[in-house]
Design a protein around this nucleic acid. Structure first.
Lengths: 110, 110
DNA sequence: GTTATAGGCAACTATTTGGTTGCATGTCAA
DNA sequence: TTGACATGCAACCAAATAGTTGCCTATAAC
């Protein structure tokens, strides 16, 4: 169910700062390192490290333009995880779960 | 795009051992700690820690039965992430590809 | 040229994390 | 009751992680 290839993606997504960077790239792809640093309470080097991890997980692709390094979001790994993993839960169990969920909501814990 | 509430889920999913435990629980829900330990190259205490993290992320629910602690997989947080996050990538950019893929596969499982 | 800008590289630090061992607690079975 | 079994709790350890600072390189602008 879980492929070992997905490991880097899961680990990359584990950090809130990296998810925030993906957020920003989702809103506007093609930003440079400097642009991505703006407003973050981190040094440029820290941001660069996060971007490198996202790059290694293939969640972000880069393209040099002069002295600027532009970052582009890459949806393929996320789709890969979604197809191989999340849909397995969602598609099979969520339909039955919807009913169960409502039933359990009055049931407290267990 | 990323809710802070999802943080525990993302962090829990970041570890391959924990994903393996979810695999096992997906195959057979309601297993005890001892059962989940079998075949793993980890001490029982390590497995218990992993399960505690999955519990805290609400990915696993537990129920005591005598001296055994039974573990049940909970698909809600994963669905939550899928709905709030992954679908944003998938539905927009891969819809055409998805349809094509399923058409080519003959729509086997689910 | 010189200088400012964009980024990379390396060393270091503190905290988190994944794992261990040892012992304590609670439950079932004889 | 005694012993075996299932799990919890706490201390400890090594490695990974997130972040820093300091300096170096390359491109652009003047």
């Amino acid at each position: 169910m879980f492929g070992m290839n997905d490991d880097a993606v899961f680990r990359a997504l584990a950090d809130a700062s990296r998810r925030q960077l993906l957020d920003r790239l989702y809103d506007q792809s093609g930003q440079s390192l400097g642009e991505l640093c703006q407003g973050l309470e981190m040094t440029r080097q820290a941001v660069a490290k996060h971007l490198a991890i996202l790059e290694e997980a293939n969640l972000v692709s880069v393209k040099w333009q002069g002295r600027e390094k532009l970052h582009f979001i890459n949806p393929v790994p996320i789709n890969h995880i979604a197809e191989r993993w999340i849909n397995k839960f969602e598609r099979r169990q969520l339909s039955a779960l919807s009913a169960l969920k409502k039933a359990l909501e009055g049931d407290g814990d267990q």
